[in-house]
Nucleic acid binder design. Structure first.
Lengths: 200, 200
DNA sequence: ACCTGAACACCGTTCAAGT
DNA sequence: ACCTGAACACCGTTCAAGT
């Protein structure tokens, strides 16, 4: 809340304020072009102040991407509890939850998978990103045991599922899934095709 | 070839030189962060000169993205001629050709699907991008008639295939398909899963 | 018709100096 | 321990002026 008030010389919790401000700005555009200087402006501090809390812009981006992956994981786990029964509805629910996360957080999603996180961040990042991946692998293993999914190497299946969802999300955000070209509910149709690749 | 020679006041074909130089710079990095000023420097002209040939940076990006889509289409058409027989090997060949294009032109591929082309370009761009999509739809229709592919709405299947390939390509470029996590040949495995979603 | 040079309004980043 | 102000080396873009 406290964004542009008059502040004493010492801010209090500038680090968190910088992150929050960046998140706010992320929510304002489809693309995520925010600038450190504008964050400082909004936070009411000098443009050099953030450097006391983050070594550089890339470090802030990495921090934010981590938050993004945490939120994505929560959104996925929140969609359908993974009881051994009705596993297929869990797949459906999570597939839609994934794409919906992208639709509702376009700039954040782009940042999470953008090339700006190249070197430094990817170590920590992939840890958490691939946490959700492990959940997917687990789900597929149980679905195979339950006879719901073809017995194939789960890692390959998980890769296929993730790439399918990521691809759909990205093409949607890029505006490439135009209804005239691709059909009205192309996303549902694509998910159905994917399901036929998995299910027995 | 003629890149940094001494030039007369009038360049000759600066427009093409700018495009070529940008393409060269695209090939030098995994990500595509080139700057108009550096292009001008390499081309041996003032940094204002390119503005006589492109209204702004976005226009140059759009031009280059178009070239990228043309090259991708060529790469796809070059991989397996679409005779009615052995359609499934055509699918395989083109799937691999798609991903291989991304691997060999990472910066160009990222630019083609990047958010920088948002407003202006997407009209013309989608025209050509979706040209390849029409080819895919045609392929799927014939494969359905030949009894090789499940009879489902082709647009949905085409969307699934494109999203799968785009997702795999992007995750690969982002370094998210690490062999330790995802298996050594996760891409082939994912493509196999996709094929099982299509074939009878 | 095409290009240059200086200028404007921005960046990210650094660093001595302030509180 | 945390923040500021000025400074540096860059951008993209514009525009009068040069050839």
């Amino acid at each position: 809340m406290p964004k542009t008030e008059k502040r004493p010389y010492h801010h209090g919790d500038l680090r968190q304020t910088v992150i929050d401000t960046a998140m706010d700005m992320l929510a304002e555009n489809d693309d995520w072009q925010f600038t450190l200087r504008e964050i400082a402006r909004r936070a009411g501090v000098s443009h050099a102040a953030p450097y006391k809390h983050f070594p550089d812009k890339a470090a802030l981006l990495a921090e934010i991407a981590l938050i993004g992956f945490d939120r994505l994981r929560e959104a996925l786990l929140g969609a359908g509890s993974a009881s051994t029964e009705n596993l297929s509805s869990v797949f459906d629910a999570r597939g839609h939850a994934y794409i919906e996360f992208g639709r509702q957080n376009p700039a954040l999603y782009r940042l999470m998978f953008g090339p700006e996180l190249g070197k430094t961040a990817n170590v920590h990042l992939n840890e958490r990103a691939l946490g959700a991946f492990d959940t997917l692998i687990d789900l597929l293993e149980r679905a195979q045991s339950a006879g719901l999914v073809r017995k194939r190497p789960v890692r390959g299946q998980a890769t296929a599922v993730w790439a399918q969802l990521h691809g759909l999300t990205m093409l949607m955000l890029d505006g490439m899934l135009r209804p005239e070209k691709v059909g009205a509910n192309a996303i549902d149709a694509a998910l159905a095709t994917m399901r036929e690749g998995l299910t027995l």
